[in-house]
Design a protein around this nucleic acid. Structure first.
Length: 417
RNA sequence: CGGGGUGUAGCUCAGCUUGGCUAGAGCGCUUGGUUCGGGACCAAGAGGCCCCGAGUUCGAAUCUCGGCACCCCGACCA
C-alpha cells in the first residue's frame, strides 16, 4: 500500500479528550475515529490490525476444534424472556422495536440465541459435543464508555460456546479453551494473568478472567511474586494477604480484562430446553460453557503494553503492515526507483503487507509518522542510494543499521517474518 | 445514575472574571517561491450558527435559566 493513497490521517496533537495512551495513539495514528461516545469507526489501518487479531483468534479456535458460525445481532424479546434476562440485563441491553411494535434487543452476548439454536438442532448424545464460535459485533449500553476502544457501546467480540453431555467432558473443553487463550494472547504479544473470577450475570460456577496488567485497567488483581497464582481483590487488601498456594507475599496490580471463560452447566439449556436423549433414552440438559474475548479491545491492549513516547510498537503478528519503506528524497529519480524496486520485491515476499511512504513530504514528517504508526521494520531509502546502501530500522528497539540495497530484501524478510 | 470539567476555525487552545467596533494564535489546508534524512522558511489566501434554545441588555462568545454533547472520578460492567 502507498501512503499517498491510504486513508491514515495522522495528528500532531492529541485530541484533548483522550487520556489513555492507547486511545491517544490510535487516534493520532489514524487507526480509529469516534462517531459517538463509545462508538468507533475503524479506518484502514485500524481494521488491518483488527483483522490480524481475528485471524489469530480464528486459527486457535479452529485448532481447538471449534467451528465458526455467525449469529444475528437482533434478538427477539421473547427469547430473552425465557431466561429471565430481558429484565435482569435491563438497561445494559440496547432495545429497539420494529414497525409493528415488536421488541428486540441488540445482542450483548449470545447464550440465548446459541442455546436456542442448539435446542432445535441437537437431539441425541450422538450429536454432541459441539464447540461453536463467532466473531461479531456486540452492543452494550455502557453507562460510561471510556478509554477509546477499551469500553465501548459497540464492540467486536469472539464468543465461543461449548455443548457436552457431561460435566467432565465440559471441564476438559474448558481446560482446552484456557490453554487456547494463553496461546492467543502470547501470539498477539500481550502479557496476561489468568485469574479466577466471579461469574457475574452470566452465571455458572467456574470462571477465569484473562487480565493484562495496565495502568488504565479497571480491575485490581493480587499477583503472587513466585508462583503464577492471581486473584481478584477489592481495593488495597491484596498487599496484606499471602498467596494461598505458596504463602509468599502478593502484590496488587491494576489490569484490564481481555477475555473471560465460564463453565455454565445447565443453566441456559434447562431454560431454553436444549436437551438430548442419552443412550438410555432419557432426556438430559446439555452441559454448557462459554468463552469470550474482546477482540476490538485487544487492539488497545497491545498499544497499552507496547509503546513509547513517540508512538506505538506493533509486534509483527498484528502490525498493520510488516514493513514500511520510507523514501526520503522524493525529488531524486534514482532514489524513487530504488524504493519502488524494494517495494516490489518486499511485496512479493509479504503480499499486501508492505507500506510505502511515497508522500511528497519532508523526511522528518515521514520519520515521525512512522514512529507513531509503529510498523515493526522500516527500510529507509534515501541518501545511501548513490553508494548502493539503505538503512534498516527496528521500531521496537530503535536499532538502525546500513544494509546494501541488494541484500535489503533478504535482510528484511528475516526481520519481518 | 451521582460528582466534577469542557464545548470558540479541521486539531490544540486564548478571549469569558469586569458585556462594546471587522472574534484571535499555533498547527493543519490552498497558491507561489526557496528548501529537502528527524514534524523547514518567506509571502499571499481560504476557513467561524463562538454547542442549541430562551431570557437580561441599547448591545451577549462573555451575564441568567433550560437543554444537548463530549471527557474525567465513582457506582455499574459476560
Amino acid at each position: 500500500m502507498r501512503s499517498s493513497t491510504l486513508l491514515a490521517p495522522t495528528l500532531k496533537e492529541s485530541p484533548k479528550d483522550a487520556e489513555a495512551v492507547s486511545h491517544r495513539f490510535l487516534l493520532r495514528g489514524g487507526f480509529v475515529r469516534p462517531l459517538s461516545s463509545g462508538v468507533y469507526q475503524f479506518l484502514p489501518m485500524g481494521l488491518r490490525v483488527l483483522r490480524k487479531i481475528e485471524t489469530i483468534v480464528r486459527e486457535e479456535m479452529d485448532r481447538a476444534g471449534a467451528q465458526e458460525l455467525l449469529l444475528p445481532a437482533l434478538h427477539p424479546r421473547e427469547l430473552w424472556e425465557r431466561t429471565g434476562r430481558w429484565a435482569t440485563y435491563g438497561d445494559d441491553m440496547m432495545k429497539v422495536k420494529d414497525r409493528t411494535g415488536r421488541e428486540f434487543g441488540l445482542g450483548p452476548t449470545h447464550e440465548e440465541v446459541i442455546t436456542n439454536l442448539v435446542s432445535q438442532e441437537i437431539h441425541s448424545y450422538q450429536d454432541l459435543p459441539k464447540l461453536l464460535y463467532q466473531i461479531q459485533v456486540k452492543f452494550r449500553d455502557e453507562p460510561r464508555p471510556r478509554f477509546g476502544l477499551l469500553r465501548c457501546k459497540e464492540f467486536l467480540m469472539k464468543d465461543c460456546y461449548s455443548f457436552h453431555t457431561s460435566r467432565e467432558d465440559a471441564e476438559k473443553t474448558y481446560a482446552v479453551m484456557k490453554s487456547s487463550y494463553e496461546t492467543i494472547f502470547s501470539r498477539i504479544g500481550i502479557p496476561f494473568f489468568a485469574v479466577k473470577a466471579d461469574p457475574g450475570l452470566i452465571g455458572g460456577n467456574l470462571s477465569h478472567e484473562f487480565i493484562m496488567p495496565a495502568e488504565s485497567g479497571e480491575d485490581v488483581v493480587a499477583v503472587c511474586e513466585t508462583c503464577s497464582y492471581a486473584d481478584h481483590v477489592e481495593g488495597e487488601e491484596a498487599v496484606a494477604r499471602p498467596c494461598p498456594s505458596c504463602q509468599r507475599p502478593m502484590r496488587s496490580v491494576r489490569g484490564m480484562e481481555l477475555g473471560h471463560i465460564f463453565f455454565l452447566g445447565t443453566k441456559y439449556s434447562e431454560k431454553l430446553d436444549a436437551v438430548y436423549l442419552d443412550r438410555d433414552g432419557a432426556r438430559r440438559p446439555v452441559v454448557m460453557g462459554c468463552y469470550g474475548i474482546g477482540v476490538s479491545r485487544l487492539i488497545s491492549a497491545v498499544v497499552e503494553s507496547r509503546h513509547d513516547e513517540l508512538g506505538m510498537k506493533w509486534p509483527v503478528s498484528v502490525a498493520p503492515y510488516r514493513v514500511q519503506i520510507l523514501v526520503t528524497m522524493m525529488d531524486k529519480p534514482d532514489v524513487v526507483s530504488a524504493a519502488e524496486q524494494v517495494y516490489r520485491d518486499l511485496s512479493a515476499q509479504f503480499p499486501g503487507d508492505v507500506l510505502l511512504d511515497d508522500r511528497d513530504v519532508r523526511a522528518g514528517v515521514k520519520f515521525h509518522d512512522a514512529d507513531l504508526i509503529g510498523v515493526p521494520v522500516r527500510a529507509v531509502i534515501g541518501r545511501g542510494v548513490a553508494e548502493g546502501m539503505a538503512e534498516v530500522q527496528i521500531r521496537a528497539t530503535g536499532e538502525k543499521r546500513n544494509v546494501p540495497l541488494n541484500q535489503l530484501v533478504k535482510e528484511i524478510a528475516t526481520l519481518a517474518a
